[in-house]
């Protein structure tokens, strides 16, 4: 009897321990959920999967905040192509990828609007704040001019693989969905927020709990990158010492190799 009571207690406590965990377990998993940018980093992939209502359409938005970015516009001056305007674009994400399970034009527009996505990055151009420096003054550009620069920045980031819209990239089978997110080499360090929205066949919209994908520098990339920014004097001196040491070691190495291979004191000594 005591054994049975003990077992019942054990099962009961395991059940009690498991239940809150099972309830808190995210409906969305990101695997891996950390991207390490090291010396051999050339980009990575991460898999996003989870459960949605049967037959739902899925929208995944992965985004990270950006930094102000400098853009230069070239124009023809005296027959030469040179910079005619320099601007700073602020308010645009540093990373922005949208993956969907179907063409966006087959989805309810109000859902897309609520999710902040569209087939043409229009959600982003409205967020851009563009300033130009004319002489010593900073001028805020009007919305039309700002949109033009925002479009250029979107194209640059698309080429780097930082921005993309991939309709049909999310696979849904039954109540499971799965998608692969491409992380390009130029990915900014920080947190990428992953939001998943499901639209059931009956039109019900569910926002799943957002997940975070961490992007961190590791090893040499972290050490050198941080040092160059926080202690540039020491970094400059280190760069010089590394170069001097390499140069002197190599010079002596070749002298030694020449002695060994050609059995002489080096080529130049005889001329």
């Amino acid at each position: 009897m005591r054994i049975i009571r003990f077992l019942a207690l054990l099962v009961g406590s395991v059940y009690l321990l498991c239940t809150p965990l099972a309830l808190a377990a995210p409906a969305v998993t990101v695997e891996p959920n950390t991207i390490n940018v090291g010396i051999n980093f050339t980009g990575a992939q991460t898999t996003i999967k989870g459960a949605v209502p049967e037959g739902a359409q899925v929208i995944i938005k992965a985004s990270a905040p950006g930094h102000p970015t400098g853009l230069s516009k070239k124009g023809r001056v005296g027959g030469l192509w040179m910079t005619v305007e320099s601007v700073t674009v602020d308010g645009m994400p540093g990373f922005y990828q949208v993956l969907t399970s179907a063409q966006m034009n087959s989805m309810p527009p109000e859902v897309l609007k609520q999710a902040g996505v569209d087939p043409d990055f229009a959600a982003l151009t409205g967020m851009a704040r563009v300033t130009a420096r004319h002489e010593e003054q900073t001028v805020v550009l009007d919305p039309a001019a700002a949109e033009e620069y925002a479009r250029w920045l979107i194209n640059i980031n698309k080429e780097k693989g930082l921005y993309s819209i991939r309709e049909g990239a999310v696979k849904v089978s039954g109540s499971r969905f799965e998608a692969v997110l491409d992380i390009p080499a130029a990915v900014p360090r920080g947190d990428i927020r992953i939001e998943v929205i499901a639209v059931s066949p009956d039109g019900m919209v569910t926002s799943l709990e957002p997940q975070v994908l961490k992007v961190t520098s590791v090893g040499l990339v972290k050490g050198l990158g941080e040092m160059a920014r926080t202690n540039p004097v020491a970094y400059g001196i280190l760069a010089v010492i590394i170069a001097l040491t390499t140069g002197l070691v190599v010079a002596n190495l070749f002298k030694y190799l020449q002695k060994l291979i050609f059995k002489d004191e080096g080529v130049s000594a005889h001329h």
Binding site: H67, T69, G70, L71, S72, K73, K74, G75, G79, L80, W81, M82, S86, Y149, W152, N155, I156, A186, P188, R189, G225, A228, R229
Partner: peptide
């Protein structure tokens, strides 16, 4: 040639951009 021919893109990241 680079200075006188039409550039591939009229707007580029300002030199040194590309982040840390």
């Amino acid at each position: 040639f680079d200075l006188v021919s039409t550039p591939a893109s009229l707007v580029t990241l300002t030199a040194g951009g590309g982040g840390h």
